[in-house]
Design a protein around this nucleic acid. Structure first.
Lengths: 247, 247
DNA sequence: GCCGTCTTGTTCGATATTCGAACGAGCGTT
DNA sequence: AACGCTCGTTCGAATATCGAACAAGACGGC
């Protein structure tokens, strides 16, 4: 259904990079004719998924129906939080779960260590997938072409002096992390931040999300992460994978 | 665009009540012919928003693009968490933010009091809007017809002996709460749980979400909630409203 | 105020897409 | 094997969508 695909392309074009769009912008970004874009936006507005203010369109609160519909069907998210909370309490570190979305991760569960007083990102927040352990633990499950497609579309920024900015190096990292079954990322996104993540697999062996533990690099060595934290996270990931059994 | 509307109707039919659907179920639930439903599902599957396992369809992780797109455009969510955390620490109570979605609320931010050790619901989790302060603080901003539509479609359950099950009484409560600018709900959903919520308004004076504080009914009287907690929450709601200024 | 430029809104015959009834295939039950 | 149910396929008919052209609206410069 061509028309449906066009509509979804416009709906998907809204996001952090295009929080609002005019008719012409929507047409260009979604690669539609102006007339088609107009029809789409009119329909989306009439259905309540998009708001119009003058010539500017933006997503309406009703559009969350879809996103949270997925989460509400994923019982593992409800199960993840207490598991992450328990681990966070025992190790006094912050734990999270996130899913992959394009070239970003989206947090779906977060537990912050009690000693952390600084600002933390909320659930629903996004971070660059290729430079976070949560992303790198999942990206390797895509096929090579898809990884490259996302890499080539990436506008790579050096967040810290340690950020990997070479796409070939990133590809290699993603592949290596897939092989070893976890990912450790050191200060690539934020100075001082070291994190380890483990993918959550579904019945087909595909990654549907990942769980992680993050800490300050002065508190833990990479070896300690692998030896001490990895088994804990793996245990949680396995429990969550098991809860994905068909209902 | 009729076709787009049909597609979105099927996509919106997935959720907690219909986690998976067969072709026939989707056609019935979305009120489409079987052929139309089949075309929709085929397109949604081809685009990656829906997964197919035999004759059973379910939402795929990719469908979160839309829901989280909305959140990612709402900077107030990022700003809410530290504010709620601060309040939670000072008062040693749990705080949350939620948006309204049909007859449910969806948590978008949650901060649990340190003394709480029991299981809490994760962000993305849903609760009945008409029986929670977070819902009741927002419902009054809908027009009467819409409130009634949601009430009539509601399957009301007596969660506790205090649950209001009469739709007229619920309507009156919603209206009263709108007038007073906050909502206090006492043990209607869970024994012992008392909560107060304040709506977050956008530039047009419409509620886009609400923030709340919940406690045990033995710790706080309703008067204390109104006198002590309401001004704090109102302050937070106002700060978040102010951060909604057009960019 | 006038003019030029750009974006949006409307129109309508042409075209593409969608439609669904009918049939066949596959599966499970008796 | 027969039956009932759901799904997959087909194809002429019906309908929805199309976009080029024109008009309207908004804005900035002179």
């Amino acid at each position: 259904m061509t028309t449906l695909a066009k509509g979804l392309a416009v709906l998907a074009a809204f996001g952090r990079e295009h929080q609002t769009m005019t008719l012409s912008e929507a047409a260009q970004i979604a690669s539609l004719s102006r007339a088609a874009a107009r029809r789409v936006l009119r329909t989306l507005t009439a259905l309540g998924y998009v708001d119009q203010n003058g010539h500017v369109f933006s997503l309406s609160p009703r559009s969350v129906e879809f996103g949270f519909a997925y989460l509400s069907t994923q019982n593992w998210v409800d199960r993840a939080t207490p598991l992450l909370r328990d681990l966070s309490s025992r190790l006094d570190e912050s734990c999270s779960a996130a899913i992959l979305r394009g070239a970003e991760i989206v947090y779906v569960a977060r537990v912050t260590a009690r000693r952390i007083l600084s600002t933390v990102l909320a659930v629903g927040s996004c971070l660059p997938a290729f430079h976070t352990a949560l992303g790198r633990a999942q990206l390797g499950f895509l096929d090579d072409a898809e990884i490259w497609r996302r890499l080539m579309a990436l506008r790579i920024e050096a967040y810290t002096p340690y950020t990997i900015t070479d796409v070939h190096a990133l590809f290699v990292r993603v592949r290596e992390d897939k092989e070893q079954g976890f990912s450790i990322v050191d200060e690539e996104l934020e100075r001082g931040l070291r994190a380890i993540a483990v993918p959550i697999l579904n019945g087909s062996g595909q990654a549907i999300a990942a769980v992680n533990l993050s800490t300050h690099s002065t508190r833990t060595t990479r070896n300690e992460m692998r030896d001490k934290f990895f088994p804990e996270l793996q245990q949680i990931a396995r429990q969550l994978s098991a809860s994905l059994a068909p209902r």
